[in-house]
């Protein structure tokens, strides 16, 4: 849950324990084949974002440069339409009634830093980047996982 806390810290969400990230604990199966998994979910910055389409004021917009879905707080009227539109439960409503959500730590990104949640993830389960670069990383990780033991046996 380090990501949840890092998000609260980054966004000053310490008041009521809200975070832009929600972690779901998934338990499956029974002994001896039981498994446990965690899903860390925040705004997925959808390509064709439904929240943006239903927003009555145009408060929700997509940043041209990086595709981040962001909110103009001054335009939001707090109608909650985005809460129904988002299939991931990403929108949050803070004390002022306006919508707030994961903005991909855009201020950190612009300074060449990782998003707060990615920075603190102790197992490096979280990453960020374009779909292309993420799948490339995944491929590299998988190849190393398979090849490393073989190298140990076969030698360099």
């Amino acid at each position: 849950m380090a990501c949840v806390v890092a998000c609260q810290d980054e966004n000053d969400l310490y008041g009521d324990g809200q975070s832009f990230i929600h972690v779901t604990r998934l338990e499956k199966g029974n002994h001896p084949s039981a498994s446990l998994a965690f899903i860390s979910l925040a705004c997925l910055h959808c390509g064709d974002a439904p929240c943006l389409m239903v927003c009555p004021t145009g408060a929700i917009y997509k940043r041209d440069k990086n595709g981040i879905v962001d909110v103009h707080q001054d335009l939001c009227v707090g109608c909650h339409s985005c809460a129904l539109a988002c299939p991931f439960g990403a929108p949050r409503y803070l004390e002022d009634g306006k919508m707030s959500k994961c903005h991909f730590c855009v201020a950190r990104l612009e300074r060449g830093l990782e998003p707060a949640c990615v920075r603190v993830c102790p197992t490096r389960a979280m990453g960020f980047g374009t779909m292309d670069s993420l799948s490339r990383q995944k491929v590299e990780k998988a190849s190393t996982f398979i090849l490393e033991p073989l190298m140990k046996i076969a030698g360099p």
Binding site: H80, A83, L84, A85, C86, P87, F88, G89
Partner: peptide
């Protein structure tokens, strides 16, 4: 308690 509303709709 509308946090699950979007996923219920899905």
């Amino acid at each position: 308690g509308f946090e699950n509303a979007g996923s219920l709709k899905k």
